[in-house]
Amino acid sequence: METESDKTNQSQSQGDATVSDTERWASIVGGSAMVLMGLKQRSLRGILTAIAGGSLAYHGATTDKSLQEKVTDATGINKAIKVEKTVTINRSAEDLYNYWHNFENLPTFMKHVKSVQVLDLRRSHWVANAPMGQTIEWNADLINDQPNQLIAWASEEGAEVDNSGFVRFQPAPGDRGTEVKVVMEYNVPGGMLTATIAKLFGEEPEQQIGDELRRFKQLMETGEIATTEGQSRGQ
């Protein structure tokens, strides 16, 4: 049986047209096992961009794949923060995909993201809150987009915060709704302190992404985000 890395290498070397786009993505993002467990020490970004390189849906890619891999290696995979979180939402995959796909919606439930501006069909500009009232900005590329199933992105080369990831929408068994899985990787860029990025994405990135997914669920299921901010209490 073909392994994930075989598939990846294949698409890297020749963009094999006999392996369908969907299969190629399924090899990394499909199934129920933990994605990051399968990834081990490898770079999520490297794999995502490598597969995207062989993707018919990804026209006009300017990225040099081997360079991309070199950059990823140079930034040091061991310094990467990798997060995987899943939540089940009692809405259809279509509804969830549509809301998420409009990136300008994301700050509604992502607390660390101040704004997202869609530049064109593929690119978007992100502004995130940083410590001490500052902001960090970068452009992100949509590297795969499968309606109602998957959205994958990576920051443009040279971005201050090198990040990549995907969100996957998959029906849960037994009418339990839709499983929404987010897998993300942040690479600590040269010159930026690990502590700074830790603050940017939370001391506990797992918890932060978990909280954001939970707010997404609240919003999509109930129409609002549960809160107590501003309620009465003894002084």
């Binding site: 129920s32 096992a33 933990m34 467990m37 995987e84 979180k85 899943t86 939540v87 089940t88 998959q170 849960a172 339990r176 499983e179 929404v180 899985k181 997914l213």
Partner: peptide, 15 residues
């Protein structure tokens, strides 16, 4: 090798 509780949560859509 892994935290069983966390792995189970991830493998079951967070449920």
């Amino acid at each position: 090798e892994v935290d069983a509780g966390e792995a189970l949560k991830e493998m079951t859509g967070g449920r």
